[in-house]
């Protein structure tokens, strides 16, 4: 598991994040940080606020209180466009692919922020637009190779099996060459084999590209195996934070979550 990659400084941190919908509190005073190049897991029982937390990170939800410190800048909330622009990409719990488009096109959308062409150049499709399209196509093909989905590149994603769709969604996120990758239950609903593949992809991305990864996952085996540090949420509150070993022995965590099983 140790690959010689270096975990760096804190690049993203949260202080006292509180989020509510109407009167319902989804997150209460959450604070934790993410270090460069690490794999940071967020775990917790259903409804603990994990997805809400991810949505706060990339600006889908806007917390009422708290502070996000990203790239040294202090701010109340993020917005989706800026967060994408500054290198945060993500996948969704319920796959959010563009169903009417092919695998290739879906992954190509991930490169949109790197494309300079506009609709007029696109319309003419001669010279710069064409060159750019092909250049990005090369990059996308690398991702397709990496994820081993060459055989389905022209298939509309709506027709693919669940596990493959998850892989394509990871591909779309990777296409943006993110510095931080948010994965919302990347292995939910997969069989053992598919999970192993997905683990391998996540570790490779982290290892070879140095991408920082924040992930939510229910499979404890996987989480304890691949993550560097783990945050545990329960009912919107943080009840544990540390290395997998620390979390495993944390009383509160065992009571709230792991303890149920043992």
């Amino acid at each position: 598991m140790d690959t010689g990659r270096k975990i760096g400084d804190v690049i993203l941190s949260f202080e006292n994040i509180s989020l509510s919908f109407g009167g319902v509190k989804a997150l209460t005073n959450i604070g934790f940080d993410v270090r460069e190049h690490e794999i940071r897991a967020i775990i917790g029982p259903n409804g603990a606020g994990k997805s809400s937390m991810l949505n706060v990170i990339n600006g889908v939800y806007h917390p009422q209180e708290g502070e996000i410190i990203f790239h040294g800048k202090h701010r109340r909330d993020m917005n989706t466009y800026e967060s994408a622009k500054s290198g945060i990409a993500r996948t969704f719990q319920n796959i959010a692919l563009f169903k009417g488009m092919s695998v290739l096109d879906n992954i190509m959308t991930g490169r949109n922020l790197k494309m300079k062409s506009n609709f007029l150049l696109d319309a003419i499709y001669w010279g710069p637009a064409r060159r750019e399209e092909i250049e990005h196509r090369k990059k996308v093909e690398e991702i397709i190779d990496f994820l081993e989905i060459q055989h389905i590149r022209k298939t509309p994603v709506g027709r693919l099996a669940y596990g493959l769709q998850k892989r394509v969604e990871l591909g779309r996120a990777l296409a943006a060459e993110p510095s931080i990758l948010l994965l919302d239950e990347p292995m939910a609903g997969m069989n053992v084999e598919e999970k192993q593949d997905m683990c391998r992809f996540i570790l490779d991305v982290n290892d070879q590209l140095g991408t920082t990864i924040v992930l939510i996952e229910h499979d404890m085996g996987v989480v304890m195996d691949i993550s560097d540090r783990v945050v545990v949420l329960d009912y919107g509150k943080k009840i544990g934070d540390g290395t997998p070993d620390e979390v495993r022995t944390n009383r509160d965590v065992i009571n709230a979550y792991l303890g149920v099983a043992h």
Binding site: N58, K85, L97, F98, N112, D122, A123, Y125, A129
Partner: peptide, 29 residues
């Protein structure tokens, strides 16, 4: 011209908004 638009990034941005606008926004459209 229309065919060219719909097969390049412009068309992909339209289809992304059509198919799943939230995800399109998160990606940066």
């Amino acid at each position: 011209l229309a065919k060219n638009m719909v097969r390049s990034n412009t068309g992909r941005s339209w289809m992304a908004i059509r198919d799943m606008d939230m995800a399109a926004e998160v990606i940066g459209f």
